[in-house]
Design a protein around this nucleic acid. Structure first.
Lengths: 143, 143
DNA sequence: CATTAGTTTTAGAATCATTCCAAAAACATG
DNA sequence: CATGTTTTTGGAATGATTCTAAAACTAATG
């Protein structure tokens, strides 16, 4: 029983947020919103698209990632200078990040709670709380 | 009573961490480690140095910031894609960040605590926990 | 189906922060 | 002051991202 509708839901999903379901947006959405959550960079996603025979320019990948982020389909994650990651998991959660292999791992919201948030600076309102737990690979145990 | 020793302590401080107290390192240290904590970008610090009649190249500012960070005199803060900030406060603490005006504000360690850290992914060890509380300026009250 | 208006995509140039490089300058030591 | 090492430097190189103006596409209309 292969899925008879390769874009099932995606067209609706795009329309619902006011984005035309163009060929490239659909293809990118399909790559992004498959099973499981993902953390991708623009360059990475572009590579996947090209690999999957989808003709799409890097500029469009950037545009699309930002549009998806703007409408809440994606969440941008900043953990390294110079590169942005986009997370398909838009629920409240945090991240482990390993600088050595640039690996991002979700931390389910419940596993980490903040005790009493401090009051934000006068004249401002909190929009988001981002927690990044940086990790290092343990010294190899080989041998 | 103007301070009779404009570089008091700084020379020692640099020597203590194994860095030669060169003219440019001293000048940058003086700008960085004056009273109060600071959050600066490389471009910014370079601008200040030039403004203060200190002849130093941007490349040296980058080198110096990284060297200072490596020896623990500074802490690098990543909150925006594309730009790095360096924090003169190296103690454990977190940040408020306003994207609108790119303003970073320290949150003293005590004012924010994390309840039960989740276990890091297998084979890794936690090196740091970075919390960024993003804020937005409240709608203006003028009028 | 042709026209038109608005949207999207695109290649390539431009930008921006940062890093790299190889040569020049500054230093430390003998 | 001769020598070997460390720093600094300007400018080129890099890498991610954004911009731009033109081409391709879409939707709506008559």
């Amino acid at each position: 029983m292969a899925n008879p509708r390769p874009y099932s839901g995606l067209i609706e999903r795009l329309k619902a947020v006011g984005l035309r379901p163009t060929r490239q947006r659909l293809a990118l959405a399909k790559l992004l919103f498959g099973p499981g959550n993902r953390h991708v960079s623009a360059e990475q996603l572009h590579g996947e698209a090209v690999g999957a025979q989808v003709r799409v320019s890097l500029a469009t990948v950037y545009n699309t990632l930002h549009q998806f982020t703007a409408v809440g389909l994606l969440r941008e994650v900043v953990v390294e200078p110079g590169r942005s990651y986009f997370d398909t998991n838009t629920s409240h959660h945090h991240h482990f990040f390993c600088e050595e292999d640039r690996n991002l791992v979700d931390i389910p919201g419940e596993e980490l709670k903040v005790e009493k948030l401090p009051r934000p600076p006068p004249g401002t309102t909190v929009t988001e709380v981002d927690i990044v737990i940086r990790v290092r690979k343990n010294p190899g145990l080989e041998g």
